[in-house]
């Protein structure tokens, strides 16, 4: 679904009885990439918002998930399961050239681009628990560098728009999941939310607003906060919602 930032003007982009997850906007706001299980296996689709036209990004007989657009809109980072294990690839959309980015026995997924498009961050289980790693794409044979150290579960990270830090999902010592922030300059993390199962944070292009998913009672809804401290909730007018993603500024 698509909605204005206040939750108004809802429009359905796709409806399916099979799960749909991980929506990601193209930088120009004209397309959305997402994962749909409609064929019985996770696959990534790109859909044009104005025309509704959609296509599967790769005709490979393997699970494909976790799409993220590069800031210039030319590439899509993806997770492919063709060796039976989740590995990160970058797809050049123009000619569908695939470049493999990770080769590791552990899970590698949830890639996301730096604002300048020269780095990706992703979640990897290579240390024995999910942690966040960064990879410099400008280097030849880049090596992933671990950038999260606090706790045994840090995942689904995204850069702040000036790359001054990252927002991610952190599991506290009590087993609950919260949205956390780590500034590059600081050694410690800041836990920003306080429900039980906070997930799917998405940072607005202005870098000041974060929207995320919460569960209240048994109902999934959206909540958000500004880095200056304001908080809000966006319950759906009907049903439940989850996995929000901000678009870029649209001109």
């Amino acid at each position: 679904m698509l909605a204005d930032s206040d939750g108004d003007n809802e429009r359905v982009l796709l409806s399916s009885s099979e799960p749909i997850i991980s929506p990601s906007w193209s930088p120009d706001g004209k397309q959305v990439a997402y994962v749909s299980f409609e064929t019985g296996m996770a696959k990534v689709y790109i859909q044009n918002i104005a025309t509704g036209k959609r296509e599967s990004v790769l005709s490979k007989n393997t699970q494909i998930s976790s799409p993220a657009w590069s800031p210039d809109g030319k590439y899509l980072s993806l997770t492919l399961y063709q060796d039976g294990n989740a590995e990160i690839y970058i797809l050049r959309l123009r000619d569908k050239t695939l470049t493999r980015m990770t080769k590791q026995f552990a899970i590698d997924t949830e890639s996301s681009w730096s604002p300048k498009g020269n780095k990706i961050i992703f979640t990897s289980g290579r240390s024995g628990s999910p942690q966040i790693y960064e990879m410099n794409l400008r280097k030849l044979n880049p090596k992933p560098k671990r950038i999260s150290f606090e706790g045994s579960y840090n995942a689904k990270a995204a850069y702040l728009p000036k790359e001054e830090g990252i927002i991610f999902v952190h599991r506290s010592s009590d087993g609950l999941f919260h949205i956390a922030l780590k500034y590059k300059k600081e050694k410690f993390i800041r836990i920003l939310t306080e429900a039980k199962m906070d997930e799917s944070p998405s940072v607005a292009a202005n870098g000041n607003m974060v929207i995320y998913g919460i569960t209240e009672g048994d109902i999934s809804m959206l909540a958000g906060f500004s880095l200056s401290g304001a908080r809000f909730k966006l319950p759906a007018s009907s049903g439940e919602v989850r996995e929000p993603a901000w678009s870029n500024f649209l001109r």
């Binding site: 679904m1 698509l2 909605a3 204005d4 930032s5 206040d6 939750g7 108004d8 359905v12 982009l13 409806s15 399916s16 009885s17 799960p19 749909i20 997850i21 929506p23 906007w25 706001g29 959305v32 997402y34 607005a204 292009a205 202005n206 607003m209 929207i211 999934s220 959206l222 759906a236 049903g239 439940e240 919602v241 989850r242 996995e243 929000p244 993603a245 901000w246 678009s247 500024f249 649209l250 001109r251």
Partner: peptide, 21 residues
């Protein structure tokens, strides 16, 4: 509610009411 900016849209995944198991 317009204080956040009119220039944003949010894409969200809407959960279907029933799923068949």
């Amino acid at each position: 509610m317009n204080k956040f900016s009119n220039f944003y849209f949010i894409s969200i995944v809407f959960i279907a009411g029933c799923s068949s198991l």
